[in-house]
């Protein structure tokens, strides 16, 4: 159940949904086949999408292997959550799962710069793979993840403790 749809059913005393509610519902329902198609592609092409990015980061970016591994892991995780958020049409999903985790990992391993490059490469890969309309389906959640990860609010760095 998505967050948007959830709110349709919160109202306690409303027996029938009105025209606006039904239109929200029908918009979502009619977008499901497209969402599933994008989801399937992302799922089946996960490695194929990410491998060229890893190669580019290592070869052209000249980053150390361990750092590339870290960043690619971040990218894979973001893509998985973004795909699920797109399927559910629920941007908050990305936030719920990644907040308090991924941004801290990015800071701890200092991958901000390489993650930034990874996102650029990822966007390029996705536009090769999908139509602009399809890219628009996944874009909001990817952007949300990106802004979360590069959030620079100060927290204590944990790397190297003890």
């Amino acid at each position: 159940m998505t967050f948007k749809l959830d709110t349709l059913f919160d109202e306690p005393d409303k027996h029938y949904l009105d025209a606006n509610d039904l239109s929200t519902l029908s918009q979502y329902v009619s977008s499901i086949p497209e969402r599933m198609a994008v989801y399937r592609t992302l799922r089946d092409q996960e490695v194929a999408v990410m491998q060229p990015i890893a190669d580019a980061l290592q070869q052209q970016g000249g980053h150390a292997e361990a750092l590339v591994e870290r960043s690619v892991r971040n990218g894979l995780m973001v893509l998985r959550y973004a795909a699920m958020a797109m399927l559910l049409d629920d941007d908050a999903f990305v936030e719920d799962r990644l907040q308090g985790w991924l941004p801290e990992m990015v800071k701890a391993y200092e991958t901000q710069a390489i993650d930034q490059q990874l996102f650029q490469l990822l966007n390029r890969q996705l536009s090769k793979l999908f139509s602009p309309a399809q890219v628009n389906l996944i874009k909001p959640s990817l952007e949300k993840a990106q802004s979360l990860m590069l959030d620079t609010r100060e927290t204590v760095t944990l790397a190297g403790l003890l």
């Binding site: 590339v68 591994e69 892991r73 894979l76 995780m77 719920d96 799962r97 990644l98």
Partner: peptide, 21 residues
């Protein structure tokens, strides 16, 4: 070289175990 397939042993990508939802 970094192999993405190798990073995904058994397809899992452990993340935020304690995510509230």
């Amino acid at each position: 070289m970094v192999s993405v397939a190798d990073l995904l042993t058994d397809g899992r990508l452990p993340g935020n175990y304690f995510a509230q939802d």
